[in-house]
Amino acid sequence: MEHNARLTYLLARLAAHDATEEELNELTALVDLGEPGATIEEVESWLQEHGQQPLPAYDGQHWMEVAGLILKSDKLAGDPVAKPVQRVHFLHRWGWAAAVIVLVAAGAWYFNQYHQPQPAPMVAGSQPPDVDPGRNGAVLTLADGSQMVLDSAGNGVITRQNGTTVILKNDGLQYSPEDAGTGEMKYNTVTTSKGRQFRVVLPDGTKVWLNAASYLRFPVAFNAKERMVEFSGEAYFEVAKNAAQPFRLKVPGKIDLEVLGTVFNVNAYTNESNSYTTLVEGAVRISLTGRTGGTVVLKPGEQLQAGGAGMEVTRNANVEQATAWKNGLFNFEGMGLREMMRQLERWYDLEVVYEGNVPDVRFFGEMSRTLKLSDVLAGLERSDVHFRLEEGRRLVVMP
């Protein structure tokens, strides 16, 4: 990328860990304004290319002060004190993610390498490998029970069923009806494992983004009076409008939703006690599975929590947090340790276990989902929680 002399100077100061408070503020302003060469992607790329120089002598107090300059705007005024929970403000908005990771992770890396006892390796002479982030991929189960692994399939038409052509593109799977279709209703299922996400365009044009460890079951053609699909996990829906054919979403054992045309996010994993439906636009009517009456109609910006205790609506929900995953981010704003680790477990395909008396830590901020696991853990290590990655993608959480 092309830089003016001042931007190059500021980036060099940051990469060398010598940036002053004024220089950090100046660099922040350039990134926020989107100056040429100063997008977060370009800055991150530059730092990765030029930041591989020997680190200066480690000064723990200096690193905490410098990191604090960036992170101080993350501080919340009037934090509640009723519950004695430690708060860890380790990242600000995405615009700061790359710079903060460089500052915090570099200092933590140097400290851990040269100022801490080295742990015994799990296998003689080697350390467990780092873990790559999740990526696009899914398994398609056809009406006859046959399966196709979409991770390795090539682009193009992969099947034709009941008058519908199924096309695989780089950004997902698309169902394109060619005629009305006849005969028995046929269903397909798209399943994402841990470490996978996928996008599906249904026969009616509805777009669905599936997060890791999720599944979506739907008819190959919507020929009935209503468009009925079944789902579990987490997904972001942009439902095509068709007042004459309502769209219904069933989450087995949890909730039933009815919409006409709307945008919403559903988090309804089987290993979570509650499900969360967050409405972005439109309207959605929700009821608990197997219970009569007691429906709730959500308005944009509202979130419904449903569980064994019933349903509860949050009027001014954090929509940005609920949909961050779809935009390539982790949003840990106000999130407890175990809830956060369940997100990492699904995205990085991990087995997470806890060792010892792990403190009740609450996190704030955002982080890119494109980072390797080691980079994420380096940021989290600023809390009183530590991690050990063992063979078999086993992540041990320790005090």
Rank of each mutant, 00 (worst) to 15 (best):
A235C: 02
E320K: 14
W209R: 09
N223R: 13
Y187I: 03
T314H: 11
D59W: 03
L202N: 00
A106H: 15
L395T: 01
H386R: 15
D32T: 07
L71W: 03
E355I: 10
A138F: 01
R342S: 11
T39S: 14
N331R: 09
Y215P: 14
G293V: 02
P36A: 08
G95H: 05
V66K: 08
H386Y: 15
A306H: 03
T289Y: 11
V263L: 13
G68L: 00
L91K: 11
P117L: 12
L288F: 04
Q53W: 12
S73C: 00
L47R: 06
F387Q: 09
G282N: 05
D130T: 00
L380E: 01
A240F: 04
P252N: 07
K254N: 12
G253K: 02
M341Q: 08
G163R: 05
T206C: 01
I70A: 04
D375L: 04
G163M: 02
A324Y: 04
M335P: 04
K225A: 14
S146N: 13
S126V: 11
L298I: 00
K169R: 14
G172Y: 07
R388I: 06
D79F: 07
H17W: 02
F247V: 02
T8I: 02
L24D: 01
V396N: 05
H17C: 00
M335C: 11
L377T: 01
L395D: 03
M341G: 04
H115Q: 12
T323A: 08
P56N: 02
T314V: 15
A213P: 10
R196E: 15
G379M: 06
A221C: 06
L55N: 09
V220S: 10
A105P: 04
D204R: 06
Q61T: 14
D18N: 11
I167Q: 04
R346S: 01
K225Q: 14
Q127S: 14
R382L: 12
Q127G: 12
E41V: 10
I286L: 11
E2A: 12
